[in-house]
Design a protein around this nucleic acid. Sequence first.
DNA 1: ATGCTTGCAAAACGTTTGCACAGGG
DNA 2: CCCTGTGCAAACGTTTTGCAAGCAT
Lengths: 165, 165
Amino acid sequence: MSKLSDVHGPDEVREAFRVYLRDRGIKYTTPRQKVLDAVLDLHHHFDAEQVLYALKERDLKVGKATVYRTLPLLVDCGVLKEVRFDVKQTHYEHAFGEGPHDHMVCRRCGRIVEFASDEVVELRSRIGRRHNFHVISHRFQLTGLCWDCAIVCPVATMPAPERRE
Amino acid sequence: MSKLSDVHGPDEVREAFRVYLRDRGIKYTTPRQKVLDAVLDLHHHFDAEQVLYALKERDLKVGKATVYRTLPLLVDCGVLKEVRFDVKQTHYEHAFGEGPHDHMVCRRCGRIVEFASDEVVELRSRIGRRHNFHVISHRFQLTGLCWDCAIVCPVATMPAPERRE
DNA sequence: ATGCTTGCAAAACGTTTGCACAGGG
DNA sequence: CCCTGTGCAAACGTTTTGCAAGCAT
């Protein structure tokens, strides 16, 4: 049970984080545990501020700086994955449990549809090979209209008044 | 000669911008012309600050705010395209002249390799169809090691000390 | 003449950092 | 114990905005 991609339960994730920190000589402190716990309770996509808010809700006081310093650790150890939408803040999602996927964002309602990316991975290595580039990761984001919005607004190209997330 | 994707010369681009503005009741002012001219002289990828610097170099004084207000207009009218790398600033590139393409960024030296995206466009509509999503645009960015860096550093996964652009 | 546009400076925004103090190994 | 980690607040860099003055139509 060392590969995080095979891990599902919160306890296993916590253990993985502890081991990751110990192996690198980084301390498994209370604030870092709190951040991890808060992150485990969040789903879908969230940013640093939402983590901070989740902590405040649980009466777990952790400084903003600590949250910003811990999230990269969680990314680096494979608990979280950075997800960059077209906004200035960095978003995160759980990197364990479900397989790799990419996102489609509805221009109108902001809805996010996830899709598995087997074909994308295949395509990316084909392209890499063609250009002598060793591909390590990718970001593939589609923008458009979800089913509901496409009905309401068949030829919409204008951005919606407000977008979520 | 109305489709900007078929337009190549600076004069045609300027004309397209003028028409775009007129059609929307926005004025074709001197500062906006200056920004366009500066942008036409820049190549590859650039951000707002570089536009500002290019203007300063040519003794064309345009306020920072005006640059920030003009760039979205140029994007909207199809002269520029937003290119988001994993940095906080927004980068732009010319949206006319050459066909659509995506980018591979070398994790180590920051080099950017462009590749045509026919297969990507095909894949994106296939995925969209599968999920009842009307895809309008995409962003496909590959990260990895370019040929030179892959030789120097065959198993590099650590980010380089500094990245360009 | 009217009202969009400009430029400046200040605000806003998410994120990072300096520093004195606390706490883990 | 020592040295790392914490929390606060202040700094940061990019982008946005308020506002008085300027200029195009």
